[in-house]
Write a protein that binds this DNA or RNA. Structure first.
Lengths: 123, 123
DNA sequence: CTCCTAACTAGTAATGATTACTAATTAAAG
DNA sequence: CTTTAATTAGTAATCATTACTAGTTAGGAG
């Protein structure tokens, strides 16, 4: 578990980015600080950080994973038209410990629909 | 919008399968009825059926999509150890129509943890 | 502060689920 | 029964992600 500058940078980018970037985006931002950082390194560190529960992976319908900070608990609204992700302050805190004998460690809510911007454009 | 026998078969397989199969599984089951059905045809029909909201796509961490019927409303528990998906009867029916100006059409809850079987094996 | 070594990285090649393509087939409307 | 646009089988291509390898480095022991 070495704390490399690459790993610290990746975590820092995810934590300071409010826009749910994908690996490629994070790679491009990271190159501004470490110009020869490798895309594979970004992927590997994103995977470690998800495993260590420092960041969250959001699986999108387009098949490209996005990554989000876990600084405060929140859910997500995903616009099915423009694919934007919008943070939703946790409204329903259901703290199940157990469902039918299965041990619940966490849960995620994904709201889907049309975002404010796309609704405007439809008019 | 043609109702081909391939599409009807794919829908039928998803609806009669309680185990959240992936495209490859569904392809293998489909071949028992239509031996020369193409894997591409299975993928295309799964995509159409998801778009038409006849079935649901479940995005897994291993990157392989699973498919589920929509006969009755339910959520999912995913075991992070063995990757099994377990149906959860809807416990929290929250019917938001709108969140911060964004129009909510649907929502999904994913519970994550360790399933009954894996808990047993840990002992 | 060195030395040591397991863990990590850069760069590149490989993987594999999914999609795209094309000639042939077919559902279904008139 | 025609007609035709949509669909299919079979195969090739795509591309996000992972694997691999020689070289580098974090950080603990001495």
């Amino acid at each position: 578990m070495k704390n490399t500058k690459q790993k610290i940078l990746v975590l820092d980018i995810v934590n300071n980015n409010r826009c749910h970037s994908n690996a490629e985006d994070i790679y491009n931002i990271a190159r501004k600080t470490i110009p020869n950082i490798s895309l594979g390194t970004v992927y590997r560190n994103l995977n470690s950080l998800v495993e260590e529960k420092h960041i969250k992976r959001i699986k999108m319908d387009d098949g490209i994973d996005r990554f989000d900070n876990m600084i405060y608990p929140h859910d997500h609204f995903i616009c099915t038209k423009c694919n934007t992700i919008i943070d939703v302050d946790e409204v329903n805190h259901c703290d199940f410990k157990e469902i039918s004998g299965n041990k619940v460690m966490s849960y995620e809510i994904y709201y889907k629909g049309i975002c404010k911007n796309c609704l405007e454009e439809e008019k």
